[in-house]
Amino acid sequence: MSKPHIAGDQHTHHDHHDHDHSHAHDHAGHDHSAGAHSHAPSVTEANEKRIRLVFLMTAGYALVQAIGGWMSGSLALIADAGHMVSDAAALLLALIAYRVAARAPDALRTYGFHRVRVLAALANGAALLLLVAWIAWEAIARFRSPTTVLAGPMLIVAIIGLIVNLTGAYVLLRGNQSDGNLRGALLHVLGDLLGSVGAIAAAIGIMLTGWTVLDPILSVLVAVLVVRSAWGLVSDSIFILLQGTPKGLDIKVLEADIASLPGIAEVGHLHAWTLTDESIVATIHVTPQPGSDPLALPGLVVARLKDRHAIAHATVQVDPPGGIQKPCADGSC
């Protein structure tokens, strides 16, 4: 089993080598400072408990809402019940992800299992998008062939749902919002909250006017509101999995900042990506100025990346003067 990386890893490489985009490194002579290092934030037990509580509330009310929607003939309730079932499954997936993410790194997965949380967040968003498509399909069918809706029972069930969702949102809002899984769970609950509001509005409207078409109309409106949040969750998760540069981090500005440090002649091959949630990882090559101490550069660079750019873990390679090969414009060299 491999040893976990050490806090503020400073990887120095003094052997000259040809460098291409495969980024092959000679890992001899690593300089590690003391103290255990975790590549990703620890799984928050409080967040796990909050999601577990909301899961039980969501799953229990989904059953009540499904029965109420079937008895009243309300698409708004049925759609929202489907939403609740989807949310309960997504919350269960998030809980499983927490357990998996808590496992220690091993020789094959040296970064640990925290990316499982990103996968769970992606699954949450994808489930929401599928649910939106189903609601839209059912609403079109209702427009073509309106059905009878019992507004009284519909209103009672919707009000209960509103109370449940408000409670769930309150529980999750008090958690750590830097946790992608918790944010995903909160988005699900807020979507359910909008569904309950829509169902209440539809029930009152039907009671006052007798227009049963209000039921599918409001269902579609809720779906439109949900799709924006769901797409944001999906796109953010995919961006992390593709190892995109973290939002708000300008690579050119960062390179210029590192190049301004004393003793550094050249900077190149800077890569930064999000490991999970708020944890940023980076690799960078530097060359020393004549007369400067190469062994002092990694600690200097790591400190600047951490203090000014919130990069939790950096690997710094020191190349001989002229050893940093600039990439070609077409990326072929």
Rank of each mutant, 00 (worst) to 15 (best):
S2C: 13
K3T: 12
P4W: 00
P4M: 03
P4A: 02
H5A: 14
G8E: 15
Q10S: 15
Q10N: 13
H11A: 15
T12Y: 03
D18W: 05
H19Q: 09
D20T: 07
D20M: 05
D20K: 05
S22W: 01
A24N: 07
H27S: 11
D31R: 07
H32W: 11
H32R: 15
S33G: 13
S38W: 10
A40G: 01
T44V: 08
T44H: 09
K49Q: 15
F55Q: 09
F55L: 12
Y61Q: 10
V64Y: 14
Q65W: 02
G69F: 00
W70L: 11
W70K: 08
S72F: 01
G73C: 00
A76G: 12
L77F: 06
L77N: 10
D80G: 10
G82R: 09
H83G: 02
A88S: 12
A89K: 07
L92G: 06
L93R: 00
L93F: 00
I96K: 01
I96W: 03
R99I: 02
V100D: 00
V100F: 01
A102Y: 01
R103P: 02
P105Y: 11
P105R: 10
T110S: 10
Y111M: 10
G112Q: 04
R115I: 09
A123S: 05
A127M: 07
L130Q: 00
L130G: 14
L131Q: 06
A133R: 04
W134Q: 15
E138G: 12
E138W: 14
A139W: 02
A139K: 03
A139L: 00
S145K: 12
P146F: 04
P146E: 09
V149N: 09
A151M: 08
I159G: 11
I159S: 06
I160E: 12
I160L: 14
L162F: 10
L162I: 04
I163T: 12
T167Y: 14
T167W: 15
G168M: 03
G168R: 01
Y170A: 14
R174N: 10
N176I: 05
N176H: 08
S178L: 10
L182G: 01
R183D: 02
G184D: 10
L190I: 11
G191V: 09
D192I: 13
L193V: 08
G195Y: 00
A199Y: 06
A202R: 08
M207P: 01
T209C: 03
G210I: 03
T212W: 11
T212P: 13
L214R: 06
I217N: 12
V222W: 02
A223M: 04
L225D: 10
V227R: 07
R228T: 11
S229T: 10
A230V: 09
G232F: 01
V234E: 05
D236S: 13
S237Q: 13
F239E: 13
L241A: 08
L242S: 12
L254G: 05
L254T: 04
E255M: 12
A256C: 09
H271P: 03
A272I: 00
W273V: 03
D277K: 03
V286T: 08
Q289I: 03
Q289E: 15
Q289A: 14
S292G: 01
S292K: 06
S292F: 06
D293W: 01
D293Y: 04
A296W: 08
A303C: 03
D307Q: 15
V316R: 09
Q317M: 14
V318F: 10
P321T: 02
G322H: 09
I324F: 08
Q325G: 12
K326P: 13
P327A: 12
A329K: 08
D330V: 00
G331V: 02
G331R: 00
